[in-house]
Computed example of a mutant assay.
Amino acid sequence: MSDLNVDTFLLALPFPALVIGPDERVTAANRLAETLLGTELAGRHHITILRQPAVLETIEAVVAEGTGKLTRFLGRDPHRDAVYKVSVNPVGSSVLLVFEDQTEIEQAGQMRRDFVANVSHELRTPLTALLGFIETLRGAARNDAAARDRFLSIMEGEAARMSQLVSDLLSLSRVEENERRRPTDPVDLVALIDNAVSVLGPVAATAGVSIQRQLPDHPVTVPGDADQLRQVIQNLVENAIKYGVSGGRVVISLSDPGPQPLLRLPGVVLSVQDFGEGFAAHHIPRLTERFYRIDKHRSREVGGTGLGLAIVKHIIGRHRGRLQVESTPGKGSRFSVILPTAN
């Protein structure tokens, strides 16, 4: 190909690409390659541009063997570190390099690995405790009725924790599977809130927390999935009871339908507020990550799996809503769910 044809060919590629000539210098590069590797690449020796040993060794092997190969290049775009799959192929006496961004694929793979590691850890901890107590009950505590009852009670708690974790994992899987299908059934949020308060009332009473409602005196209907929205309300209220217990009360409020700037649609705001310890603002962006906990020890003490807010986020996303979190250390937290009132 002529130089003009090479430049035209590279310009048409949707990926960063460059050509290395027989003298080991760059003969052509497209704009995307210059964005990735720097400007004025033509005429420079490729070693001064591609300094990573894996890439240089692959180029040498392609020149020596005359067959194409793949390698990885670690670069940076204007906003993030990036991982590229590099196709290195002989083209006559030259070598063509094409860089394909694999960052999102790599991140997805890392998220899967982290998820498996977290699930394994969350299951291993109670399993280890169960196995230890079983061994003790078979040995020293075999004939100690008091110890046996105490250990069985702890074992029951650990088994319940594992059961809740499995239940939350299945729930998260179901929500993610259906996230693109927006639910459209009419759901009365006032009725769901009343139901949640009835269910969690005994839990709140045991913790010494009162639940106060600030609701319209008429039904407030949104398009949605009643079971999933019930789960959102119960998760948020239960969290408020567990982590805001020092404040002594939880307030659930629901607005009448009206304009919602965040949605650019008419909607309602459902808020759950506690008056407990609160938390620092830097935790807020990560609260809905799977297994993220502000206080891991306390979360396990109160039976948290680290998945509740992740489930909430996905359910709200399926309903095309928004989740807002506000918290002030020492004063408490407010979780607000903004839902559209029309399809």
Rank of each mutant, 00 (worst) to 15 (best):
V98A: 05
E106S: 00
T67M: 07
R51N: 02
S94M: 00
L36G: 11
R31E: 15
V83S: 10
A12K: 13
E60A: 14
V86H: 02
G66S: 10
L96C: 07
T39Q: 13
D101F: 02
V98M: 06
G66I: 04
S120L: 01
L18D: 05
E34M: 12
R124M: 14
T103S: 15
A117G: 09
K69W: 01
A117M: 02
Q107S: 09
Q107Y: 08
V26W: 04
R80M: 09
L97Y: 00
G21E: 09
G109Y: 13
L50E: 06
V88P: 04
L74R: 10
F73L: 04
Q110L: 14
T58L: 01
T71D: 11
K69Y: 00
V116S: 12
Q107M: 11
I105V: 11
V95Q: 11
R124A: 15
P16I: 01
L13P: 10
V19S: 04
S87A: 13
D81Q: 06
E106A: 07
V83M: 09
P16E: 00
V91A: 07
T67Y: 00
V95T: 15
G38F: 03
D101K: 07
L18R: 06
H46E: 07
A42Q: 15
G92P: 12
T103E: 11
E57Y: 08
I49Q: 12
T58Y: 07
H46T: 07
G92L: 03
V91P: 06
L123W: 02
E60W: 07
F15N: 14
A64Q: 15
V116P: 09
T67Q: 07
L13I: 10
S94Y: 04
S93K: 12
E57I: 01
P16H: 08
T58C: 14
Q110M: 12
G109N: 15
V83W: 02
V119M: 07
A64F: 05
V62A: 10
Q110K: 12
E57P: 05
P53S: 06
D101A: 06
E65Q: 14
R113G: 08
T48I: 02
G43H: 12
S87N: 12
P14E: 09
V83N: 08
P78H: 08
G21K: 00
F99Q: 02
F99W: 01
V116N: 12
A12R: 14
V95N: 08
F115L: 10
D101H: 04
L41Y: 08
